[in-house]
Simulated scan of single mutants.
Amino acid sequence: MPLTSALIAVATLVAVAIVAGAVWRLRDGRRRDGADAIDLTGLGVHEGRIALVQFSTETCTRCPQVRRMLQSIASARSVDHVEVDLTHSPDLARRHHVLSTPTTFLVGTDATLVARFNGVPRRADLEAALSELPALQEAS
């Protein structure tokens, strides 16, 4: 009987891990909208400019891929791309509730958090979020 209980416990843990992993994968890179004012101190963002803020760390394996994508989008759309290395600024991670890297913020001209992407953002979602900004609609 004890062996059966142990097998049931292991099977339950494996099932929970699979479900948790599936949920995590579905949420990775998804856009979450915001409209909250953001404290730009320490981020290197210029007020009055739209910015893509990438939070990364030295050990992040997916961050270079995100950096290249954000730089490409930023140059095509004439917006700023700022990368913040949380290895040297853990206080910024706490202040902005960044629990994993890469994390990307889309910051509007009025210093509001327009959208947040945890993980590798989907390019189409990022482009759509940028297209919705009034400042970029007027420039088109």
Results as ranks from 00 to 15, higher is better:
A15R: 10
A74D: 07
R116M: 04
A76F: 05
S100Y: 04
P90T: 04
M69G: 05
Q54S: 08
V82Q: 14
T103Y: 05
G21H: 11
T112H: 14
A111T: 12
S100F: 08
F117G: 02
A17W: 15
L7V: 07
V79D: 03
T104P: 08
R62L: 05
A17S: 15
S78T: 09
A11S: 14
V79W: 00
D33A: 09
G21V: 14
A22Y: 07
R49W: 02
H96M: 02
D80V: 09
V79C: 09
R32G: 03
T59L: 10
A17L: 12
I8W: 11
E58W: 12
L92M: 03
E58Q: 10
F117L: 02
A115T: 13
A76I: 01
G42L: 04
R32S: 10
V10N: 08
R31T: 11
N118F: 09
D85Y: 02
T61V: 14
L70T: 03
A17F: 06
H81K: 07
L106M: 02
A9L: 12
D85H: 01
D36R: 14
D33M: 12
F55T: 13
T87A: 11
D110I: 00
L126W: 02
T12C: 14
R31H: 08
L113A: 06
A124V: 06
L86G: 04
R32P: 01
N118L: 11
L92S: 01
P121T: 00
R49E: 15
V114K: 03
A15V: 14
A76Y: 03
